[in-house]
Design a protein around this nucleic acid. Structure first.
Lengths: 191, 191
DNA sequence: TCCCTAAAACTAATGTCGTTAGTTTTATTT
DNA sequence: AAATAAAACTAACGACATTAGTTTTAGGGA
């Protein structure tokens, strides 16, 4: 058909570079200027690959959500439901620790209601729902429980990154106790 | 002593204007340009009141934390510990709903480890600790519990603002069930 | 092999923003 | 009324995102 010219950069390389910048210097340091410099091209050239900074932010959000999903889906598969949820929780927080900038991007899409962004997020919700199955909650209670689990994990991750917790206590132990407490409480959630 | 010239603008008016912009258009829309326009002055004049955008962000963070504290301290004083925590939780989420931009500023200080910012946050932690007293947990367990409560409330607030929850379910009910579950679990937290 | 084509790089230019320097206005105190 | 200092201003600079228009480049078809 039509000529297929070289693909010097593909979107994955760009997102990888953007992730590097975000994780090392913060999401706010991901600009067309810094990204172009890291890719050894000039800022306007980036418009051949995506449609401006807001579009890049959306792509980073989806990329981050998908990477988070992969990290969560990986570290699972024990026998008990409790243990699966604990593993999932630790994997979630570990991802945020290893990729602070990319994790931040996860919730920094210019339009959070965007369909593609919502779709990527839905996979994580479904994963969490499947892990909660062993509790045999009602469908409604399960949804509330997933909201609670996500609130804990997102809040914990964000606060940990922002020194919201003092230095006094081990944060790993906090996470473990918090999840245990929530799971204990969940079992009486049905109504 | 020395002359005391007019104070056309004081810091409170500036923070009020900045809060308006943040709540109506998002924290990222709080720029020296938009703020100056709302105050009917030119951007450079703002440097007579604070030391650039990063400094403003820090001042907004402290201002937001103090306002949040006031909102929490207000809506309390029932008899039972459970009910106090529920009231505190609802007040927290309500504040984030009414002041999305200011709430965002709460955790957007340029240096989260800054002493003044930490000091403002400490008051909220202490308030939460005092509410948890009725559970007679060990000191360490109390600190973990406060971390859990803050994680839930911050995560819930952020996710709600970012359409992290679908539209399927009433969010007020979610909050109530989540807090109840966590409180039920907390009571077995001592070791 | 050579040309055609389209992707992807480039330069140049514009407007906005934060920030600095230097100047003028203004209100209060003496 | 004069002196003073806070707080406004204008002018200018550099960094940034973005647009327009141009050149380079590499693969597909003749």
């Amino acid at each position: 058909m039509s000529p297929r010219p070289k693909i010097a950069l593909n979107m994955n390389e760009i997102l990888l570079a953007a992730t590097d910048i975000a994780d090392e210097a913060g999401l706010h340091e991901v600009t067309l200027a810094t990204l172009a410099k890291k890719l050894s091209i000039r800022p306007p050239s980036l418009y051949n690959h995506f449609d401006g900074l807001p579009h890049l932010r959306k792509l980073m959000a989806i990329y981050g959500i998908e990477n988070l999903y992969a990290a969560l889906a990986d570290c699972m598969g024990s026998e008990s439901g409790d243990q699966d949820i604990m593993e999932l929780s630790k994997a979630y927080v570990l991802f945020a620790r290893k990729h602070p900038g990319l994790y931040e991007a996860t919730l920094a899409a210019p339009d959070p209601a965007d369909h593609e962004v919502q779709l990527a997020g839905k996979k994580i919700v479904d994963l969490a729902l499947s892990v909660l199955q062993s509790y045999s909650l009602s469908e409604e209670a399960s949804l509330h429980a997933v909201r609670g689990l996500r609130s804990i994990l997102h809040g914990f991750s964000t606060l940990e990154q922002n020194r919201g917790f003092g230095l006094a206590l081990n944060t790993d132990k906090s996470l473990e106790l918090i999840i245990k407490a929530f799971l204990a409480g969940i079992k009486e959630m049905n109504t």
